[in-house]
Design a protein around this nucleic acid. Structure first.
Lengths: 249, 249
DNA sequence: CGCCAAAAAAGTGTCGACACTTTGCGTCAC
DNA sequence: GTGACGCAAAGTGTCGACACTTTTTTGGCG
């Protein structure tokens, strides 16, 4: 963080935004743990700035759902229960189904190429986190193809919460799940097929199934209920969170 | 606005929130017009507080999409183009379809009664604004029945943008649209039917059709394209905004 | 009469300070 | 030893001030 209020050339003012980025990343990656307190003076000292920008940053994080205000006014990193995971996934489905539906209506060959590239990179990914990154990047790309900025903005918020939840699942993870990756990639191909075919309703439906399918796979012990790629799990309510493996969609 | 920082008993701290409420209401109702500038010192004087809470309030309004930051850092009330209206409606559909789907899964007789009451009040409403209020209140009630807080929070943001858009449509309005009301109420009955029947997929579908149907009706000159209640307009893209009448859904 | 320059006004980003509240801890009585 | 009390520490909400930037006004000059 730059010292403070001394002559910045004219780079559009920020600072709170930078703090948001850092804290968000810390929370999502688990550097700061759920339940941990976030005090303005402490963070101000850490970043070498005054409380004002820190305060703005914390408010933003609260809007994003990564942080929680207690009734006393104190701030803690949000803790995620099973119910939260269900809510996040439901909301993701709501937004991404519509995103896919809209994207399908003005899909072009160049977009198909881009997504194919994403999938190829996913197939070549060596680590779980690399795969996750590529997965989310592809979903973001499709969301942006919807042409609906509001949808994208709302999706971003949920996306961060989802990423945070993933970290949690990862902590419980025991073994790498190559099967999950294959399942996920298969889902991506199916989604791409509906997009390239400009079939909005099918795209919405397939996207919804893809998201819930990947999640249920990842939160359910794979040896117990291995969902088949063809007829993934259907019902809306998410399974118990067990020692699942790397989740992606 | 209360004077300032003198001993509040212990009512959980606010002030920025109160300012948000006032400004939001002013923007939605058209007291403050799109494109109009919002300067922190001016508002601070108006509310008799310092810039700090005002600043927080403005940030919140920006998150809600009612206000826009220019590259220079200045703030203006957001202006709505036709494209914005389409985005808002699409997003509403995404969220409310899922809301209805979820609500249908744990719908009870008491909820049916409540919604019936809403509809009865709508049928008895005398003014357009009263009808609009009841309409939104009912949609909110259904959203909350989804049991998904995140969905509700995101919906609130879009709801305010939608209400703001309504004010603009109303300004162009020429005649009261009793037909629209009948169409809307008919839609509400259909939605209720799917909820009471606990048919999630049908609820999602009917809700989507209801929202887009009401909107297209209201933004399209009714004498030109009167959509029939049975087979309302289907396609996703919203019609040209003409001198339509009171919009609700 | 219009146009450009310079000065004034208005506005934002950040800071440090203060009042008040809540939390935590040590002390003292029992 | 344990529990109540009270004081210190930490934290939030708000304020006013200052540095800098952008916009507006003013004033001089062609």
């Amino acid at each position: 963080m730059t010292p403070m209020t001394k002559n910045l050339p004219h780079p559009r003012r920020n600072l709170a935004n930078e703090i948001v980025s850092v804290l968000r990343s810390d929370i999502i990656s688990g550097v700061i743990n759920p339940g941990e307190a976030l005090a303005e003076p402490v963070l101000a000292k850490r970043f070498g700035v005054s409380r004002a920008p820190v305060r703005e940053a914390i408010i933003e994080l609260e809007r994003a759902g990564l942080v929680q205000f207690e009734t006393t006014g104190r701030t803690r990193v949000r803790t995620l229960e099973e119910k939260d995971l269900a809510e996040i996934v439901e909301t993701r489905i709501a937004l991404e189904s519509m995103g896919a539906r809209l994207a399908a209506t003005h899909w072009g060959p160049e977009h198909t190429l881009r997504v194919q590239q994403f999938i190829a990179e996913q197939e070549a990914a060596t680590t779980d986190s690399e795969f996750s990154l590529l997965d989310i990047a592809m979903h973001e790309y499709i969301m942006k193809r919807s042409g609906n900025e509001r949808l994208v903005v709302l999706w971003q918020y949920i996306r961060w919460q989802f990423e945070m939840a993933l970290t949690y699942i990862h902590r419980l993870q025991i073994n790498t799940a190559h099967d999950l990756r294959r399942f996920t990639v298969a889902g991506h191909w199916k989604v791409l097929e509906t997009l390239a075919g400009r079939k909005p309703e099918a795209a919405a439906k397939v996207m919804a199934q893809h998201i819930i399918g990947s999640l249920e796979w990842s939160v359910t012990e794979t040896t117990e209920h291995p969902p088949t790629a063809g007829s993934g799990p259907r019902k809306g309510h998410v399974a118990k969170m067990k020692k699942g493996s790397s989740a992606s969609s």
